[in-house]
Each structure stands twice: as C-alpha cells, then as structure tokens.
Nucleic acid binder design. Structure first.
Length: 580
RNA sequence: GCGCCCGUAGCUCAGCAGGAUAGAGCACCAGAUUCCUAAUCUGGGGGUCAGAGGUUCGAAUCCUCUCGGGCGCACCA
C-alpha cells in the first residue's frame, strides 16, 4: 500500500463530502511527508488548494477539514500550521500495521498496480554490432534494464527490446575489416590495419572461425562476391560478443529487431508511403546549417519528411542521394512497427551524443501514430572511468581501451550495475575504481550491501543465542509488533513505508536512480539504529531476557532486509548475506 | 547561429510532479566507541539554489531573458 495515496484518497473523500466544498475539484490535493519530522507524519495542502473555491480563508477551512481528519483510522492528532497545512500524527499502531504488511510482502514489497497492465516498450543498448561494448553502452544497458524492471514492479506490461543497427555502411566496414583478418587467419601477412577499418583484435577469433568454416573459399575474390556473406557472418559474430557482454552484466532483452530485416521486408517503404498519403513527404532543398557550414556543402534536392509540422526545427531527409534510405527512415519504420505491435508507449534509451536526434524521432512518432503514440527518450551521459580521482587514460591505438567487460571482470556486475544508477541519467558519471573497491560509507554499493548483510548477521546471531528453534520464521513473523515503541524503531518503519510510493514516482518519472538514493538512506537509517545499541543496551536487537521484544525487533530487521532485497531485485543486484 | 541538457555548501551530488527553517556524503572542527561485525556513530561550522524578471497564498522546482559549461547540428549510424 502506498500510504500517501491511501491518505490522499481518504482526505479527498472527506473534502468532497463537506458542504462548504460541494462539487470542487480535489485533484490538486496532495498528502506528503513533511520535510521536518517534528511537524508530524503526514501533511496535506487540502485547505490551501480548496480555499479559493470555497471562498474561505485557508486556516478557517483547515479547521473544518482537520476535525474530520482526526476521525480517520490511524490518525492520533492533527494540527494546522503555517499558511494552512494540516499536519497529522499517526499512531504507532498504524506503523505496526505497515510493518506487518512489509513482512507479509517480503521481497515483493513495493510492487504496485499503478501501471494497470499497460503495455510499454523499452528499447535500450542498441549498440552497433561492430565490436564489444564499451562502458558508455553499459550505462545505457543498465539504465534501460532497470527502468524496465521498475516499470514491471509498478505494474506495467513491459517488453525489453534491442534494435540491431545492421543495415548501414558501418557493417560493410565491419565486413571488410573481418575479411582482412580472415586473410590473416589464412596465413597472409596483412601488415598494418588501414585507416578506416576497425583495428580491434576482437575480430581475430571471428576471422579464425570463418576460416575454419569456409576454408580459403573467399580468397582472391572480388568484394562484391564475398561482401554479403561475410557481412552476415561478421554481424552474427559481433552480436554474439555483445550478447556475452550483456549476459555478463545480467542484462536481458525479450526482442531483438534487425534493421536489415525491417528494410528487407519493405517496412520502410510502408512507413514512407503512409506518410506520403498524409502529404508529409516531399522533394525539397534544405538550408545549410548556420554557423558551421561544412566545406563540401552542396545544394541538392532531397526527399524530406515534414518534421516541422510536429515540432522539429527543420524537415529531415529520408533518402540518400544513391536512393537508399537514411537511418532516420528505417528508424521511423521501426517505431511504426513497434506501434503496430501494440506499443503506444515507447521509451528509447540513447547515448547523449544522439541528443540532436530526439525531436525528429518524436515528431516522426506523432506523425506515424496520428498522435496516439508517445515516445520518451532517455539520454545517458558519458561515463568517466577514474582511478583514485585521476582519469583512466584510454586509447584505442595504444591498446589501453577499457571495455565494459574489463570493468565487469574487475569489480563484478553488481557493483557496475549499482554505480551506474547512482546518478540521474542526464548527468555525467564518474566511475572510480579505487572508490568502488573501498569498503566504507564512501562506497554506496558497499554501504547498502552491508546493511543487508548486517540484517542477516543479526538473524544468524539470534539463532546462535536463542537456538535455531527459538528463531523460526513462524516466531519472527508472528511477533508482537506493538512492542516496537522506540522513536528510532518507528523512524525506520516510517522510512520503509515510503518505499511503495518511491517505486511509483520513480516509475512514472522514468528515473531509476531515485531508488539508489533511497536505498542508501535506508541503509543509513538501519546502521544508525544498530549503533544506538552501542550506547544504549536496551535498544539492541537481541535481548536474551526478553524474547517477545527480541522477536519483534528481529521482525523489524527482517523487514529491512527484504526491503533492501526488493530494491536490489529491481536493480538486478544480488543481495549479500555476509560480507567477506 | 540554432536546438537539447546542465548550473544547489570548498568538492561530489540529492531534492519526493510547486510547499514550511534547502538536504546527504566527502573534506574541516569537537567528541564517542572494552559493545549484536570498528566494515562506525554523535554534534558543529559552512549556501544570494548562476543572475534578473514573471506566474501564485507559496518557486531550487513552472515561464521569459542574460551569463557560464557539456553535447549535437545535410545525403553517418
């Protein structure tokens, strides 16, 4: 249960039934946690947003509403503050019931149905199949994967998709690069890799596999004879590499869509024809870009899409001068395809260097779906690899290029995944090796993992002290939670109780990073409580002389563990039961 | 020149669909800790939310402009 929504509904109902407020729109009414805990547990702006329509002073209206709120179940008192806030205190019983719900839900805690089973398509990674993934791809991969999981947790029906850009010139370059390596594999001395081809040695094993499969069949042939066949081989070899990288990172997709197949199936012609019928395709000449006129600029007539009708700055070419489709054209076909597969809501995760492409794609989606489809584009900023505060020097040429795989091998997938989510997507992210190896509060992954492990440690310790029979699930889950009365215990429950709402708002904002910050806060709250037991032995979780209280506290600890595990579940990070 | 993103404490960043006295970590200062894992905790100082207007009961948050930074800008993907 999202307690804020619960009380929003309750208080909205109160207001709707007040004589003074008959017929008023209560949709602006909100219930939130006050910034300052001394103001109470929850606060509402009801009187302030409704006073105008009622023609009353906010504080006068607040008096009326307050009297009704005080009758609500779980509310002990309400008071009016500031310009007209109504601050409410909830009784401990309310928090104990929340804790009971958390325990019942276990690691499913926070699961919501706000998504209403609505279909959403999340497209992410979509790295060109020309080599292994780099760290920037990794960020997009984790972001997309976790956003998808988050939306699932919030009750959406999510499809995870990968768009394979296997139709452009870059895959021809790949094929030529592989062909060269193939000749090398057959024993030829190929010398330096020429400018314009991919130099990476990840092509070596692929070339050997090709040589093994086909022998010297392609040797000495003209490019047009081998290009198509070797290109297919190269693409599938590179996709194999990428799939391995993804699986090392624990990133999954439900659907892989090939641009080449889309084009081959005539989907681009279909999309363009659709737009032609709407008079959105025409022959025209574009102005040269201002300020940065390319040297080789020439005026030429092009086939253009009327993107300006849908909010873009200029109309966009869909056909190259050799008659083939531009990338944009096939991307339009791809999004139309997604729409026709039932996805009115689409989310694309791209690198920030594609920022200039957002408007035109959104314009295209509007045009192709008659404004029924929506596309949200999440741009992920650069990842700066650092070590002890210094940038890690990377050069493809010098062979010191750090791939995503290198990073995963170095620190593990869980660390990579978590760190990628510790910044919002449109902010740059420093990934510091020395920091993520550190075992301290400085390192958020460690700090949160440690909270989870500490929870397990307490449960293990209890079993040791009280005997395994004394700490069964039954006993912990059946504990008398009303024994938890210390303010710091209630504070922990209070924070855990906001998790369902956090899931919902993070999902609707498409901002998974909020979960990372929440988990860090939650871990801090728990560590803090643990530490109180140092000063004050009566606050320790395990008190041998008082088994009922111990059981209640173990229940609290267990709830903390499952709340963190719930977040980790969305993150695709395995919670640790002990630190080593 | 245009578009998008960004500008919050010395540093790195949060800020919960507009709410009350703007928060956290690091760093700094002062303390605590023979104890369920010292793999920490408590307290303190520190901000004109880049600047200026506007919208309103109320703005770090929304709108406009200015300044500063990043990315992108015809037939690449």
């Amino acid at each position: 249960m999202n307690l804020f929504r619960h009380f929003t509904n309750e208080i909205s109902a109160i207001c709707a039934n007040l004589d003074a407020l008959k017929g008023q729109d209560v949709s602006r009414l909100t219930v939130e946690a006050p910034r300052d805990v001394s103001h109470g547990d929850i606060t509402t702006n009801a009187a302030m947003v409704l006073c105008k329509g009622a023609n009353m002073k906010p504080r006068d209206l607040a008096e009326i509403i307050k009297a009704e709120i005080e009758k609500l179940d779980g509310v002990t008192s309400a008071e009016i503050a500031g310009p007209g806030f109504i601050n409410c205190r909830l009784d401990n019983g309310f928090w104990h019931r929340q804790l009971g719900e958390i325990l019942k839900a276990g690691t499913d805690y926070g699961t919501s149905d706000v998504g209403g089973g609505h279909k959403v398509n999340v497209e992410y990674v979509s790295a060109n199949p020309t080599g292994p993934m780099h760290v920037g791809h990794g960020r997009g991969a984790v972001f997309g994967d976790v956003l998808a999981s988050l939306l699932e947790k919030a009750g959406y029906d999510v499809t995870r998709e990968y768009y394979i850009n296997d139709a452009g010139a870059q895959v021809d370059v790949l094929a030529r690069s592989l062909y060269l390596r193939y000749r090398e594999a057959l024993g030829e001395d190929i010398g330096e890799i020429p400018e314009g081809l991919y130099p990476g040695d990840y092509l070596v094993p692929a070339a050997q596999a090709l040589a093994k499969r086909d022998g010297d069949k392609w040797k000495g042939m003209d490019e047009e004879q081998w290009l198509s066949s070797i290109r297919d081989f190269a693409i599938s070899a590179m996709m194999e590499l990428i799939r391995e990288d993804l699986s090392a990172l624990g990133v999954k997709h439900d659907v892989f869509t090939s641009e080449r197949e889309l084009v081959g199936a005539g989907k681009v012609d279909e999309a363009i024809n659709f737009l032609k019928q709407k008079n959105l395709i025409y022959q025209g000449v574009l102005e040269p870009p201002k300020g940065q006129k390319p040297d080789d600029w020439e005026e030429r007539e092009q086939t253009l899409f009327k993107a300006t009708d849908f909010g873009d700055d200029v109309d966009r070419p869909v056909q190259k001068s050799d008659g083939s489709w531009t990338y944009f054209a096939s991307d339009m076909a791809y999004h139309l395809d997604k729409y026709r597969r039932g996805f009115a809501d689409m989310i694309d995760v791209w690198g920030a260097d594609h920022g200039g492409y957002v408007k035109r794609m959104q314009a295209a989606v509007k045009a192709l779906t008659d404004n029924n489809g929506s596309l949200d584009v999440k741009l992920c900023q650069m990842v700066n690899l650092m070590d002890a505060g210094e940038p890690v020097k990377m050069s493809k040429r010098a062979g010191t290029f750090v791939t995503l795989r290198d990073v995963i091998d170095e620190v593990g997938k869980d660390v990579v995944r978590f760190i990628m989510l510790t910044r919002k997507n449109d902010a740059g992210l420093d990934f510091d090796f020395s920091k993520v190896r550190e075992q301290s509060k400085d390192n958020p992954v460690f700090y949160v993992q440690y909270a989870h492990a500490r929870a397990y440690s307490v449960l293990r310790m209890a079993a040791e002290e009280l005997g395994a029979d004394g700490v069964t699930d039954e006993k912990v889950l059946g504990a008398d939670l009303s024994l938890l009365v210390d303010e710091s215990e209630i504070a922990l429950i209070r924070l855990m109780a906001t998790w369902p709402r956090l899931v919902e708002t993070a999902a609707s904002a498409h901002e998974p990073h909020r979960m990372a910050f929440y988990m860090y806060d939650l871990a801090a709250e728990f560590h803090q409580l643990w530490n109180k037991g140092k000063d004050n032995a009566s606050l320790r979780f395990i008190i041998k002389e008082n088994v009922p209280l111990t059981m209640a506290r173990l229940a609290l600890v267990r709830a903390l563990g499952s709340t963190i595990a719930s977040g980790f579940g969305v993150f695709g990070v395995t919670p640790k039961e002990e630190m080593r």
